[in-house]
Design a protein around this nucleic acid. Sequence first.
DNA 1: TGGATACTTGACTAATTTAGTCGGGATTAT
DNA 2: ATAATCCCGACTAAATTAGTCAAGTATCCA
Lengths: 153, 153
Amino acid sequence: MKLSQRGEYALRALLVLGMNHGPEVVRIRDIAQQQNIPRRFLEQILNDLKSAGFVQSRRGVAGGYRLQRDPAEISLADIIRHLEGPLAPVGCVSVNYYQRCSCPDEAKCAIRSVMQEVRDAIVSALEGVTVSHLCDRVRDLQGPMDNPLDYII
Amino acid sequence: MKLSQRGEYALRALLVLGMNHGPEVVRIRDIAQQQNIPRRFLEQILNDLKSAGFVQSRRGVAGGYRLQRDPAEISLADIIRHLEGPLAPVGCVSVNYYQRCSCPDEAKCAIRSVMQEVRDAIVSALEGVTVSHLCDRVRDLQGPMDNPLDYII
DNA sequence: TGGATACTTGACTAATTTAGTCGGGATTAT
DNA sequence: ATAATCCCGACTAAATTAGTCAAGTATCCA
């Protein structure tokens, strides 16, 4: 599971939205500026996150994005699966993106059995962590701030 | 940590060499045939594994490859690090291939702290496993065979 | 009603990585 | 000598990655 630039930007953007969660909406431009993400690229990414149901948007002058679900309901495993595909190192041990490999008998494949363990390790490190948990970590690591936009993500 | 085709071929080849470990040498062609790996591609891969010190070769008519070190001394973590680069999902949590990221303070980055945990999970799933362990697993999974080349890898 | 602002959509591009292929040279057992 | 085998570097096609861009649509507000 290698995180691409795109994936990292997406996580950062979602975390910003998590830190500013509420009825109000955050502009792409603000996220892009704060996080040093190319604006046009971030547009693309947020659009993708929108059609996946992670965020929702409002158009027009007072437009922007907000999280669609509660931050506690969005797990990193789901986000990363959507952005990068399988968490598993090989398709034949992936639960959500399973792909049969060429070996004659998967049940007897030793390499597969190790990769299975790697997959399980990755999944358990990610599936319990939600955007809300990440926000808690940010506050723990950086102490309380007056303006939520001051947090470093 | 996504395993490329090249990486999977390399693991399979090393496992074949592990199962046939001894003073004698195994031909590329035999490995390629048994494992359904394109021969020329496997040449390239084994060459790479040779210059990395995992295998050694003998040229000429009775030529071929064998493991350079004891199978119990070759860990999957080392192999995969050499083939695929960092085990970590992002450079800023990699021990062996560390790369500073753009965030202003790594110590306060919440995403990094999760990725750190993912890295640790991957590393502990891989660093204790050696080629020798893999061979044990093959034998456990498939029972005893007369000819070591009969094992499915 | 008409800007101005902000999201939307789809196409486009350059650089890098991946998965090989290929030709020919070097080495060694017989 | 010769046939088998590894060795080496260059080459290629397809996929992925990291963006860019233009033109459109919705919304607010004066």
